[in-house]
């Protein structure tokens, strides 16, 4: 067990280093630099800026300097938000992104899984058709459409929700629903199909033959196995949702970190691109790790061993 954790930690560090290295190389190989403006910046100032951000060092030195910073959690200053360090930007935006992402993840789990189970148990009945129909629509409709519709109807037309501003608790409803729409439907569908498959298994029949109550059959025996693929999906999904969504944050005017991802590439904001990618990668790895632990908890056949 202990060996396993040590192995896991080492592989995590190696993966992060690899991610950082690949991002570093890719980033520098795209044309254009961080100081491309509509109106050209005088050469003398470009020179000083490059010196400040160490861009005039040889690439290899820049790489090692960056890696050194990474180890000490110094992600460097942003090129486009003057005066802010990348870690400050993450610290300022992540709590909100994570809060909304956390609520969305909860909603997905609390609603998605039961709905999927009910749908599987009532296969080919009206309720199943209704759930699958709704889920198919929600999977296909992009989140920005859901978000815009929420603002249009609930905020503008009916005045039930505020249009922006994360001060009122009510305000979270819009972003959380828009953010969870796709995954919620996906989880419901996944739970349903995986449940249907498990229900056909011999051991479920045996359990029923033994006279166990339907609640026990489903809740104790079927569900555990049916959840394995769902947990596999939910792990990385939580990582993606908690680190913010560009579209949702833009539409609901949220000061989260999702938008930095997209903006930083356009701005060639090297340090922000690096910082966000490494942050997301680290988060992702942790979530995958948690998924592995959950596996072993719900299915004893899956063992964590060194």
């Amino acid at each position: 067990m202990r060996n396993y954790y040590i192995k896991r930690i080492i592989s995590t560090i190696l993966t992060l280093l690899l991610v950082a290295t690949i991002t570093f190389i890719l980033m520098r190989s795209i044309p254009g630099g961080p100081f491309t403006r509509e109106k050209f910046i005088p050469d003398e100032i470009i020179r000083i800026l490059e010196e400040k951000y160490n861009l005039n060092d040889p690439p290899l030195k820049q790489y090692f300097d960056y890696m050194k910073g990474l180890v000490t959690f110094d992600l460097g200053p942003s090129f486009s938000l003057i005066g802010f360090k990348v870690e400050e930007m993450i610290a300022s935006g992540f709590p909100l992104s994570a809060k909304i992402g956390g609520m969305a993840s909860l909603l997905i789990i609390i609603v998605g899984i039961p709905v999927g189970i009910i749908s599987a148990l009532k296969q080919n009945r009206p309720i199943d058709y209704f759930v699958m129909f709704t889920a198919t629509i929600l999977v296909t409709v992009p989140s920005f459409v859901i978000a815009t519709l929420i603002i249009y109807f609930f905020a503008l037309r009916w005045g039930i929700l505020p249009t922006f501003g994360n001060t009122a608790p009510l305000w979270y409803i819009g972003p959380v629903i828009a953010l969870s729409g796709y995954s919620l439907s996906f989880v419901a569908r996944l739970t349903r199909s995986s449940m249907l498959e498990v229900l056909r298994q011999d051991y479920v029949r045996t359990a029923r033959a033994n006279g166990l109550s339907e609640f026990k059959v489903i809740g104790k025996h079927a569900l555990k196995n049916a959840l394995i693929p769902v947990v596999t999906y939910i792990g990385p999904m939580v990582a993606a949702i908690l680190t913010g969504s560009f579209v949702i944050e833009k539409i609901f005017a949220l000061p989260g970190i999702g938008r930095y991802f997209v903006d930083s590439v356009g701005n060639r904001d090297y340090t922000v691109i690096m910082g966000m990618t490494v942050f997301y990668a680290a988060f992702y790895i942790v979530m995958v790790f948690i998924v592995d632990i959950i596996y072993s908890l719900i299915d004893p056949r899956i063992k964590i061993d060194g």
Binding site: T148, I151, Y152, A155, L156, G159, P162, T163, F164, K250, I251, F252, A253
Partner: peptide, 13 residues
């Protein structure tokens, strides 16, 4: 608020 349609809705509201 850099999303025009959101700001527009807030203005109308």
């Amino acid at each position: 608020i850099d999303e025009e349609s959101t700001a527009y809705a807030a203005f109308q509201n």
